[in-house]
Structures are given as C-alpha cells and as structure tokens.
C-alpha cells in the first residue's frame, strides 16, 4: 500500500543509445494513454525507474507488516484482533502482487529480496517509526493508509500495465484499511480521558512522518520530470501532500483531536490548508538508516528470511525428488 518518492534513480546517468525514432514512438504511445505491457519495447530508463519504484513499493508493504504486527497479539478485542490480522495479511498480499509486477520487468524475486536485506533497496520511511500504543494502530490505519491511498489511486492509471493492474487490486482491497483505523480512533476519543490522550499522542507522533511519506518537496525532487512524462507519476509530491492535508484536517476535527502544527490554517485564497515547515533533516536521517526502528525492521526481515531458508530448501528438494520419481 505504501509508495514513496524516495530518491532519484540512476536513469539519467545511464543513457543507452536508443534510436530517437523508437523513443519518440514510445512516447507517443504513452501520450495516447496506451498501456505498456511486459514484452513491449520500453526505454531502459523507463524499465529501471519502474523496477525501482515497484520494488520499493513492494518492500514497503512487507516491512510495513512489522509495526502493525507488533500489536496483533495485544489487540484489545477479538473483533479488532481479527481485523488487524486480516489487514496485515493484506499488506503481505499487496507486497506479493507488487513483487510479481516488478518481476514482469525481468528482475527476480530473489534479487529484489536480496536488495532489501542487504540494505541496498529503500522502503517507505514511515515504517521506521515505532508503534508504542494501541492508538498507533488506529493512527496508522487512518493516516498512513490515508496517505498511501492518495499516492496509490493515481497509480491505478500508471502507464505500465502490470503495475496499474496490481494497484487496482490493492486499492480495492485497501478500502477497509483506513476505515478500520479511523474506527479505532473514534472508539478511543469516545472513551476515557486516558484513551483520548492515547489517541492525541498517536496523532502527535504520526502526523509529521505521514507528511514525509509523500517524499521531498517538488523543488528538491529530481527526476520526477521523467516519471511524469512517462505517466508513472501523475501528481507531484507536494500536490499529493496537500490533498492529504485537506482531506485529513476535517477528519481530525471530527475526532476532536488537534493536529500538532501551530501553523496550520485555512487559506481562503487558495481554498487549501497551509501547513508548517516539515523537518526534512529528520526525513533524510530516517532514509539514511537512522530512524528509530530501521535496524529492528531490517533485523526482523533478515531473521525471517534466514530462519525460513531450510523450509524453502526442503520444499524445493521435495519438488526435485518428486520430479525424478515421476520420471522413473
């Protein structure tokens, strides 16, 4: 569910010599809103950009299971427990859809996982923050999934067919995630003083990291020009961020919670909510591996992968033996 414009790709640096006419024809197809399919011609840079973006998206889904997974065993009612387990399971499913979409571009799952586990690949900064109370599960559903949806809906019209189809499936399944989170927040603000405090504290901690999910400000966002031209990206980081703020402010008001931004005010002229300065240094640190949970998240993924190696080997060994037996 979580895509993020993380960093610039190497596409500009690595120019392959491709016939200008072929490139122009490719661009014509894009401009005509045609979908590009796996075996179609595509510029090397287009392929590279997509592999990077789709795999980062997939990694984010899989790493994103961990912060919420942290509360499945402590969910305070059976209804919440079932909903949360189903939601986190969905995230795994979405990771799988996305890895499969990336594989259509000629990269294997093993390579992609290897890039994640070796620390070479990035994933959304948001999952490097800890879930410290049950209200964080509400805040993640409401805000993180809310931000993700803003990002993902335009991706359903992405020029690359397999990515667009995966996103349609993801968006459809995810429609319950944000509601699930908001409902948790509603129950808390309607509860005791301690529960309301828990909800406000979660909003305080998740608000700014959620705004960072949309990636660096447009002015600093290199290479988004190519993504826009290729119709991989249809809105800029700042446009999506603004949409998110505009949608979320009234939802926070309804909950009776305060968004932790003293500069937040409605701009009559633009019709949008103006928000305060984002701490981009914090964002850079989290992306660089210095967020509160980066090390824990990677350690958990590596452990699952290493602990599971003998299982995967056993299944492959059995499959190989069965083939031999069948041939005999």
């Amino acid at each position: 569910m979580y895509t993020q414009a993380l960093n610039a790709g190497p596409e500009a640096a690595e120019r392959t010599i491709e016939d200008a006419a072929i490139l122009a024809r490719f661009q014509e197809r894009i401009d005509a809103e045609e979908r590009i399919e796996p075996n179609d011609f595509m510029p090397a840079a287009y392929r590279k950009t997509l592999i990077r973006q789709i795999s980062q998206h997939a990694h984010s889904e899989i790493v994103g299971m961990l912060p919420e997974g942290n509360w499945i065993t402590r969910a305070p009612s059976l209804r919440r427990k079932a909903a949360l387990l189903a939601k986190v399971q969905d995230e795994c499913g979405h990771g799988l859809y996305l890895y499969a979409a990336a594989e259509t571009l000629g990269v294997s799952r093993e390579e992609l996982i290897d890039q994640l586990l070796s620390g070479k690949a990035k994933y959304s900064s948001i999952f490097n923050y800890p879930t410290l109370s049950w209200a964080d599960i509400g805040a993640i559903g409401w805000l993180v999934d809310g931000a993700a949806i803003m990002n993902q809906i335009p991706l359903c019209r992405c020029s690359y067919g397999p990515y667009a189809r995966a996103m349609i499936r993801v968006c459809k399944e995810e429609s319950f995630h944000q509601r699930q989170g908001y409902e948790i927040m509603l129950a808390l603000v309607r509860g005791s003083e301690a529960q309301r405090e828990m909800a406000q504290d979660a909003l305080n901690r998740w608000w700014w990291p959620c705004l960072m999910m949309f990636g660096p400000p447009d002015a600093d966002s290199r290479h988004s020009e190519a993504s826009t031209r290729w119709k991989i990206k249809r809105f800029s980081n700042d446009e999506l961020r603004q949409k998110f703020v505009d949608a979320t402010v009234p939802q926070a008001r309804y909950l009776g919670l305060t968004i932790p931004d003293p500069d937040l005010r409605f701009n009559e002229e633009t019709g949008h909510w103006d928000y305060g300065a984002i701490d981009w240094e914090e964002f850079r640190q989290v992306i660089a591996g210095n967020g509160p949970c980066n090390a824990d998240r990677m350690a958990a993924r590596r452990k699952a992968h290493e602990d599971g190696a003998w299982v995967r080997e056993a299944a492959c060994a059995h499959a190989a033996k069965s083939r031999v037996r069948a041939a005999a």
Binding site: I62, M65, L66, Y99, A300, A304, G308, R312
Partner: peptide
Amino acid sequence: EWCGHAPMM
C-alpha cells in the same frame, strides 16, 4: 504470532 515472520511470503 507468525505474522511478518513466516519462511515464505
């Protein structure tokens, strides 16, 4: 308890 830690996705 396995959620997020299984041997294969």
